[in-house]
Design a protein around this nucleic acid. Sequence first.
DNA 1: CACTTGGGTTCCAAAATAGAACTCACATGG
DNA 2: CCATGTGAGTTCTATTTTGGAACCCAAGTG
Lengths: 163, 163
Amino acid sequence: MEPIGKFRQRCYIRLMKWTDLPNEGCSVARTMSVLGDRWTLLILRDTLFGIRRFDDIQKRLKITRHVLSDRLKRLESHGLLERKPYQERPTRYEYHPTQAAKDFVPVMQAMTAWAQTHLPTEKSEPYRFLDRATRTPTDPKVIDANTGAEITSQSIWVEANRD
Amino acid sequence: MEPIGKFRQRCYIRLMKWTDLPNEGCSVARTMSVLGDRWTLLILRDTLFGIRRFDDIQKRLKITRHVLSDRLKRLESHGLLERKPYQERPTRYEYHPTQAAKDFVPVMQAMTAWAQTHLPTEKSEPYRFLDRATRTPTDPKVIDANTGAEITSQSIWVEANRD
DNA sequence: CACTTGGGTTCCAAAATAGAACTCACATGG
DNA sequence: CCATGTGAGTTCTATTTTGGAACCCAAGTG
């Protein structure tokens, strides 16, 4: 396997596949291994908003049935959705968000606030988040619970972890 | 185009393509139109952490050069990265995160905290976020700035916007 | 020169997605 | 009984998108 004559091989690294991401140390990478595609997060959002049946999700998102079927299985296998029968004869199922999925709601809210600022549009938001008690729109901010101060790109410092 | 005999056509809806997402009213959908794939957010994270050159990103992420090239162009076109020369002869460029990208840091922190709870791993995080002043690890929480209370799936109410 | 480096592009094969049709279990209505 | 409808998928083919490797170019190095 020696290079011959003018043939010069440059060193190539072993590439990483999408299927390697779940085992990454980086939390962002692991999140992407579950939610890192066009539709998965939108499916999860719909189930959180009460749209939980196959055909309803498909009609709302206008996604192919094939991909929807695949993503629901994936979300279930990662423990974000639970498939529960809602009727017998014939048995039909709906997909309920688990606590892990519900805990993603604050992240989605922060994401929504970001997009409203940085990816503006004329169209109106199909849903909005209200405070359950006061029924007023929420104004999501990410804070550091240790200091109580808002986290911004200026307030933080990133450090590489050795080991 | 009439159905003939036993042939019964069921009604199919017009599907949505990924390229339609940028015009969606839903902020989560617009976010996915920019960041909704396996690698884009990881690329963005690297540039935020100071890894800003083509080969450096490629070596770290072990992504194909083809896809990296495409994603960098996409991030640039969406205003999240800026391509700036860092040397002449030959001119070489690096990719700097814009303010829009920097404003995604809090969202990434909330996401990281979520994954540490719900997608645990033995491997250690390659980076960690510290408070710039105190140099202690941050404890990110999403709060409603109106009430000051933490946002959880229990504290919020989702309402469909009519119009 | 011979070779390296950074930053890409090009090419082909493999995998994922779009789009439409088909299946299955049962319900309904005449 | 038979035709039709519904919800929840699966199957099929064509198109796109990736993975993986090689190639290209401009300039620097020894």
